[in-house]
Computed example of a mutant assay.
Amino acid sequence: MTRLALWQGAGVPGDLSATVAEVARVTEAAAGSDILVFPEGFLTGYHIPGLAPGALPGVEGALRAVAAIAARAGMWLVMGTHLDDGTTLRNAAVILGPDGREHGRYAKRALFGAWEKATFAPGTTPVSFDAGGLRVGVAICYDVEFPELIRAHALAGAQLVVVPTALMVPHDRVARQIVPVRALENQIFMGYANRAGTEPGLTFTGLSCICGPGGEVLARAGAEPVLLTADLDPAALRAERAEACYLSDLAELTGL
């Protein structure tokens, strides 16, 4: 059994120290979880008008501090953050292990809207890791709206896909409809961790959710900050695939 936790909330944009303190507080509240997922852009803030390379000093140091929090908690943390190497910005999720080490950086592949496309370089490579007895794939927000990206994770063996998100009004249909369908059509678990509150020009929908392999909603948030948890049983994956397994039947249909 794997306990998944999602934090629906926001950090303190522009104040990395205060945001790291919030990470520590939330991680303590999620004690007993195997994996804790934070929303898209949690560490840095998501929507930063005028953001340009070189404008986010201190992010690497803050990530090292978050890694230390993961080690103290004995927990896997998936941290949404913008990454800035001085020449290129990426919208990313960084995987930090209970050993206090970094285990991967995923850069969002499907950039959404004019601001993201003008600000970030898209990622090109999927990222996954093993945690709590499950193979875990990583996607970010708009990625989940492309069935092909989540199907590729499932075909590669992912049993859970976690999705740091900054879903804004009026796009609540993504959280309400698409995420459960992605779980159902791949017979996997999905963990969709959205922001709460507002940023310049944006109001976030909340509606974070954890879905099971039959498309069932195991936990669902409203609009306010909240910690969601659910226990994920690998036996549920086997049971859902026992009579008809979409992935193996697809292979027969297409010769994959």
Rank of each mutant, 00 (worst) to 15 (best):
T81P: 01
L89F: 09
L51N: 09
V94Y: 02
A52L: 12
F38N: 11
P53D: 07
A52S: 08
V94W: 02
F42L: 05
G61I: 15
A52D: 08
I69E: 15
A73W: 04
P39M: 10
I69F: 02
A52I: 06
D85R: 05
D84R: 07
H47C: 04
V59Q: 02
M79G: 07
L77I: 09
A93T: 00
A55C: 10
L77R: 10
G97T: 09
R64P: 04
R64A: 12
I48T: 08
V66A: 09
W76I: 01
I48L: 15
R90T: 14
L96H: 11
E60S: 12
L83G: 08
H82T: 06
L89Q: 13
N91Y: 01
R64L: 14
M79H: 05
T44Y: 06
L56V: 03
E40Q: 14
L96P: 08
V94A: 01
F38G: 02
A92F: 00
A68M: 06
P53R: 09
G97F: 10
I95W: 03
M79L: 15
F38C: 02
G54V: 03
R90E: 08
D85C: 04
A52F: 08
V37S: 11
V78C: 08
G45I: 14
G41P: 07
P57E: 04
H47M: 13
G45S: 14
A65R: 13
G97D: 10
L89R: 14
L36V: 15
P57V: 05
A71F: 12
G61E: 12
L43M: 11
R64Q: 15
A73V: 13
V78D: 03
P53K: 06
G86H: 01
I48A: 08
A65I: 03
R72D: 14
A65E: 13
G54R: 07
D85S: 04
A52T: 14
H82M: 01
A68W: 06
L43W: 03
W76R: 00
V66N: 00
A93D: 01
N91H: 11
A92H: 00
V59G: 06
V94I: 05
V37E: 04
A67I: 05
L36M: 11
N91L: 14
D85M: 06
G74N: 11
T44F: 09
L56Y: 03
A68K: 09
P39L: 07
V59D: 02
G45Y: 10
A67Y: 05
I95E: 04
I69D: 06
R90D: 01
H82A: 13
M75H: 07
A73K: 12
L63D: 10
R72K: 15
A92Q: 00
M75W: 04
L77P: 06
G41D: 04
V37A: 11
G74W: 12
W76S: 00
I95D: 03
A68Q: 12
G97I: 05
N91S: 15
A70I: 11
T81K: 00
T81H: 00
A65T: 07
L56R: 07
A71V: 14
A65D: 13
A68H: 10
N91M: 09
M79C: 11
R90Y: 01
D85P: 02
R72T: 10
